[in-house]
Design a protein around this nucleic acid. Structure first.
Lengths: 232, 232
DNA sequence: ATCCTTTTTAACGGAATTTTAACGCAGAGG
DNA sequence: CCTCTGCGTTAAAATTCCGTTAAAAAGGAT
């Protein structure tokens, strides 16, 4: 199972190694930054799920890194610092940090605090940003795995559902046979195009039970399929 | 300006006074509990915005307090403990605590960590933290761990109860097997899906003893399970 | 240590899903 | 006009998945 992506900001080589090794062991992805400016740009481009931030950086005050990141992102920030004074902790926390660890620290405690911070932010993501799709009277709640046409709830098998997700997330685009097969079966076995047709039939029938309901999936002969945007 | 409401759980008089005085100075509302059971019921009735929890309670393990509260509420919990071992911190954090302070602690740091925790939880204000659940004639009192169908009180084993809590808190959503296993057993061992089925059978039987009682748990083959809202 | 409750494991019938195969249809091109 | 190709549809076979039961193992309390 792949864990979340973490940005490590630390200029001390040995501590950086300690942290990155630990994260790798626990199957987290990570990237490193050794300066404040690099940290800010990495945060923007890499979009990490969490930031581990050392306050003692050469080119920029750590507090300013927090403030800069906080102008656009709510990503959890755990500060790791050699300075253990109350005033330092308070300053960091009040400027937007989520947690504060003092060096020397236990890597096990660090991991536990990372897990706690990620757990919280997952709730945020699932709670606030509703991942719902609407196209005409077709309704998909990706988080809840629920599909509706109007008020009618539609039951789909796993492959049918995957297929619908793939098409809906690419509404308007034409997806080739091989692209679809690749994303659903993982392999590129050419024989599977027959199965794909069967699933298309089944999916289309479930989506437009009635004749009145507009067909949303269009065939492109010799190429693939496309979900079209419903007319208003 | 009136600040948020905080529940303090602490059996030591002097520390309780220290904390409550500090909170009062900073214009927070607060209530106190000196035992674990009192803490759980206060949490249900008072609906605090944050909990300060001492782990060394006379009547109940502090970890169990966290677990119990977490069955229905995502309120931030900051643990305050005399025990500073890594294993204690990890256990608390992994069981749902948001932060961990070791005695003796600085009140200023405590206040900063409270502010940080409250700042975060404002973002997910939508979280309905009712301690009583109703769905048709199914009742769950999360704080008291009581389940009823109509007037009939239902006895559930710990795992069955956790399962029901997980499903009920996500009524309408389809929860995948791995998600459920993750939240109940913590691990991702694939073999456990067999146990999950057994518990489902048992839970369903206990929930609808009679044939007349509507089935509330729906199976999504190949995906997981879903608790549906009862028809009116 | 023993009993009771809870949890896990194993086995099997049946249901749901996926794959395979067969057939009809429509358009393109000779 | 015929054939060939790609598509949609249906039905049946093969496979996977699920629910249930019962028994074994583990855990707790007296």
């Amino acid at each position: 199972m792949k864990e979340s992506r973490i940005l490590i900001v630390e200029d001390d080589r040995s501590i950086m190694n300690l942290i990155s090794t630990t994260l790798k062991l626990n199957q987290y992805e990570y990237v490193c930054a050794s300066g404040g400016k690099e940290a800010v740009s990495q945060c923007a481009s890499y979009a990490p799920a969490l930031i581990l931030l050392d306050l003692g950086l050469p080119d920029m005050d750590g507090i300013d890194v927090i403030r800069t990141v906080r102008t656009w992102s709510q990503v959890p920030i755990i500060v790791i610092s050699a300075r253990g004074e109350d005033s330092d902790k308070i300053e960091a926390l009040d400027n937007g940090a989520d947690d504060y660890l003092t060096k020397p620290f236990s890597v096990d405690e660090m991991m536990a605090r990372i897990r706690a911070a990620l757990r919280r932010s997952i709730q945020l993501a699932s709670g606030s940003s509703e991942s719902v799709y609407r196209n005409g009277d077709l309704f998909i709640d990706y988080a809840a795995s629920i599909v509706k046409r109007g008020e009618r709830e539609i039951h789909l098998t796993p492959i049918e559902y995957k297929l619908l997700c793939l098409l809906s997330r690419n509404t308007g685009k034409v997806l080739t046979h091989s692209y679809i097969i690749q994303h659903i079966w993982g392999s590129t076995m050419e024989t599977d195009i027959v199965s794909l047709r069967v699933y298309m039939t089944s999916l289309r029938r479930k989506l437009s039970q009635d004749e009145s309901e507009e067909a949303l999936i269009r065939t492109h002969v010799g190429i693939g399929y496309q979900m079209v945007r419903a007319e208003e």
